[in-house]
Design a protein around this nucleic acid. Structure first.
Lengths: 135, 135
DNA sequence: TTACGATAGTTTACTATTAAACTAATAAAT
DNA sequence: ATTTATTAGTTTAATAGTAAACTATCGTAA
């Protein structure tokens, strides 16, 4: 069993993600949102509150505030004040937001999928499982 | 075999990297450089010219210019004009820069390694293999 | 041998991001 | 009940990042 080079795995992985993001950024912009706004949009269903989004996406709260503001202005989501806790805002995707999210993720999936295609189906499942454990 | 969700793999992986970066950022700052400056420093040996660095790290050229300027001012690297091509600057790590790079990468490896520890040894190897294939 | 297009790196001028401080609401303790 | 601490989200003030335009050099070609 050879010793694993953590730094190398890190660097490969990081550069992979950055290069995929860079390559799709112009297409995503074409949908009317920025890459980071898409990441926010993509987590709204699972994490409908801004503070959670900030945590899960490792973003500062003010950044989330701003992305949400833009996404709302663009008609991709709307906000409701949580009646059980008046501090909280529940975010809800609009149909347009959901459609745009799907398109954006499809672009990302296409670019990332091109890399993932180097793995066979079983390996892709295995990777998903391992990343689940790491999350 | 269920169809694999590329977007989900993407999201898990992206969130993993961001959370690791966020967790080590304060310690890296303590070394006297920013995270992105560390990434630049870490690629200088393999890619000693700014334009290459920009390509490999998926960063705009002006950003690289700025990071290099700071790294040079901090004494972590120096620049030589390539005598064969007066447009090019060859970057060279100083001993101090090399030491700081090693410390920074060690912090990163430690934080990432802590996540990796959730996997058993066989799973770590499997992950390494899969990510190698994707690089 | 100058003219032209391409490349390396920088500067400028603007936008994006965020730390710090704030308001408002809730929870916990006294 | 009232203080105190905590949490959600926003605003402000300042820094970080970058697109566009620039200088300088190079490679090539008529």
């Amino acid at each position: 069993m050879p010793k694993i080079d953590v730094g190398r795995i890190w660097s490969l992985n990081f550069r992979l993600l950055m290069s995929v993001i860079t390559s799709v950024a112009p297409d995503i912009t074409g949908l009317g949102l920025e890459t980071k706004e898409l990441f926010v949009l993509a987590e709204v269903d699972e994490h409908p509150h801004p503070a959670e989004l900030a945590g899960v996406l490792s973003m500062p709260k003010p950044s989330v505030t701003m992305y949400i503001k833009r996404l709302e202005a663009a008609g991709f989501l709307r906000r409701e004040i949580d009646s059980a806790d008046l501090r909280r805002h529940r975010l809800i995707l609009t149909p347009e937001g959901r459609k745009t999210m799907a398109r954006g993720l499809a672009l990302l999936a296409k670019a990332f999928g091109a890399r993932l295609a180097r793995l066979n189906s079983a390996q892709q499942s295995e990777l998903a499982t391992l990343l689940e454990k790491l999350g």
